[in-house]
């Protein structure tokens, strides 16, 4: 999942408008943001699989994406914002964990319980024809909620429709008929 994580960030913004938008978006994407350097450093491994959706295979992502490490990153990220108040720290911590929750239906069984665990989770929507549509449904829900709350509260989302359009455009760019997928 890619754009769906941004939609989750916007939905959390709508739920807690006091939370900084950039921090919510970084939070929802944090596990993927960590994955890049971890692969570069050899801590995690992925293999490119051209023509086979989603275009790569995640061989070892336990340090960024396992259930236990997702919780660790969530708590660590929340701690960074503790001074902004408990509620804001909590929603930012949940933003990080939402990544695991949204990846769970999409990934094949490559989400370990903890680093090195033999048990791996993932329902494998990526390997079905429905993965792009499932993510689209998540985006519709998240962005719809954000857009409606932005119109009602008027304390954020000055260009809410454009923000949603950017998320949707990112998802369209990721469509299987436009690319080999991610």
């Amino acid at each position: 999942m890619y754009a769906g994580h941004f939609a989750a960030g916007l939905a959390l913004k709508a739920r807690k408008p006091e939370a900084p938008t950039w921090a919510l978006l970084v939070g929802t994407g944090l596990l993927d943001i960590l994955f890049g350097p971890f692969v570069a450093l050899g801590i995690e491994r992925a293999t490119v699989t051209p023509g086979q959706p989603p275009g790569f295979r995640l061989d070892f992502i336990d340090w960024s994406h396992s259930l236990a490490m997702s919780l660790v990153w969530s708590v660590a990220y929340a701690a960074l914002f503790w001074k902004r108040g408990r509620d804001i720290a909590a929603v930012l911590g949940f933003a990080v964990f939402s990544h695991f929750l949204l990846d769970l239906p999409m990934h094949p069984a490559d989400l370990a319980l903890w680093p090195g665990s033999a048990v791996h989770l993932g329902f494998g929507l990526w390997h079905t024809p429905y993965y792009w549509w499932f993510e689209l449904a998540c985006i519709a829900l998240g962005c719809g909620y954000y857009w409606a709350r932005a119109r009602r509260l008027r304390s954020f989302g000055g260009h809410a429709a454009w923000a949603c359009a950017v998320v949707l455009a990112l998802h369209v760019m990721n469509a299987p008929w436009l690319s080999s997928g991610r």
Binding site: Y2, F6, G9, L10, K13, P20, T21, W22, L25, V26, G29, D32, I33, F35, G36, P37, A46, P54, F56, L58, I61, A150, R154, S155, F156, G157, G158, H159, A160, W162, A163, V166, V167, L170, R182
Partner: peptide
């Protein structure tokens, strides 16, 4: 799953679009 670059542009852009709406000037009193 994406590399770092896939977040560098969208996050500032979406955050910028999310900024609070400007309140327009108050209409002059009648």
């Amino acid at each position: 799953m994406l590399c770092l670059a896939s977040f560098v542009v969208p996050i500032p852009l979406i955050a910028w679009l999310d900024r609070a709406p400007k309140s327009g000037p108050k209409p002059p009193p009648l």
